[in-house]
């Protein structure tokens, strides 16, 4: 694959938070990449470090206390070492982010119109009137009914789904290259979820963006992403094209995750679960992070951490990689 096809490349990212009980290894050596125009899904349980990774791409983590290592290359430039001015230029203009909680991610004292216009006023040389005209256009694009009326409303006057649409409008205001979405649909109910996902997919094509969606919901992944990265305990355990992941999951954790989805058609009495809990990030197992819960565990798994290795054929240039001794 040509090098310039990669818009974002993360190499050996580690994020640590020193606490009184010990060092929390939230992200523990993650490498992944995002191609131009691609939608990458990142799945994992709560607390596996996926949101922390997303926040460190935007450099939103406060460091210190967070200790961040590795590199995050955006068009070949390391975001982590970027001077502040450059960073402020990129944030919101080239890389933007949608947050999980639409209820709290809009400033309660600023009306919707000015709030959307702010992004454009920060990054583009336009007047306030032009910015609010554009804001209106954006609201129409994210399919908000009565867009004109909405401009003058305060966030608390909108429902969760509407607020998430406003967030999307804000994120798209400057036609970004990369859209990072942190559980964009988790706080919404199912019908709204579907609408928001469809909207994201549509807008991604219209704007020719790359998108990284972080979620714990495999349904969301199946819906929007072309490639999936499975997170566990601050590590990437499997990476595959979406189809391949659902058809032939290789890592026992991925298998477990897929097994946990309740199906209407199957009539097994009890829902399958993965035994045990997410490992304590303060003291991650020395071997495979999943070993303590793994049904296929062997001695090697406890002693040595498996590296990501390529398996099977690359489908359309997309590799299937897994970090498991047994696969």
């Amino acid at each position: 694959m040509a090098e310039d096809a990669r818009i974002l490349e993360i190499n050996g990212l580690t994020v640590r938070f020193p606490t009184s009980e010990g060092v929390v290894r939230a992200v523990d050596g993650v490498s992944l990449s995002l191609d131009r125009g691609e939608t990458l899904g990142v799945v994992g349980e709560s607390g596996c470090g996926k949101s922390v990774m997303l926040n460190s791409i935007m450099r939103l983590l406060e460091a210190p206390p967070a200790r961040i290592g590795g590199e995050i290359l955006y068009n070949g430039q390391d975001i982590l070492k970027m001077p502040k001015r450059e960073l402020f230029r990129i944030r919101g203009k080239e890389i933007t982010m949608i947050f999980q909680e639409p209820m709290t991610s809009l400033n309660p004292v600023i009306k919707i119109g000015p709030q959307i216009a702010e992004t454009m006023l920060l990054h583009e040389l336009i007047t306030k009137d032009e910015a609010s005209a554009k804001a209106l256009e954006l609201l129409r694009q994210v399919e908000i009914p009565n867009a004109e009326e909405c401009l003058g409303k305060y966030p608390h006057q909108l429902s969760g789904g509407m607020r998430q649409r406003v967030m999307i409008a804000m994120a798209l205001a400057c036609k970004p290259q990369i859209l990072l979405a942190d559980e964009p649909t988790t706080a919404l109910d199912v019908t709204i979820q579907a609408q928001i996902l469809a909207l994201l997919r549509k807008l991604k094509d219209e704007y020719h963006m790359s998108m990284m969606i972080v979620t714990h919901d495999l349904g969301v992944i199946a819906e929007v992403s072309e490639r999936v990265v499975v997170f566990y305990g601050g590590n990437v355990v499997e990476e595959a094209p979406t189809r391949a992941l659902f058809d032939t999951p290789l890592h026992p954790y991925t298998e477990g995750l897929l097994g946990c989805i309740p199906h209407l058609s199957t009539k097994t009495g009890r829902l399958r679960v993965i035994e045990g809990n997410v490992p304590n990030p303060i003291d991650l197992p020395e071997g495979c992070v999943f070993a303590p819960r793994c049904p296929r565990r062997e001695r090697l798994c406890v002693e040595e951490r498996p590296a990501l290795k390529e398996v099977g054929d690359a489908q359309g240039g997309k590799r299937h990689r897994v970090a498991c001794h047994m696969a």
Binding site: L60, G92, T96, F99, S105, E118, M167, M170
Partner: peptide, 20 residues
């Protein structure tokens, strides 16, 4: 989160402090 969101659209520290 909205303060984080403000930072994420490229608002600088002083601006975030006074406007958000």
């Amino acid at each position: 989160t909205y303060v984080m969101a403000a930072k994420s659209i490229g608002s600088g520290s002083i601006r975030t402090m006074f406007c958000h």
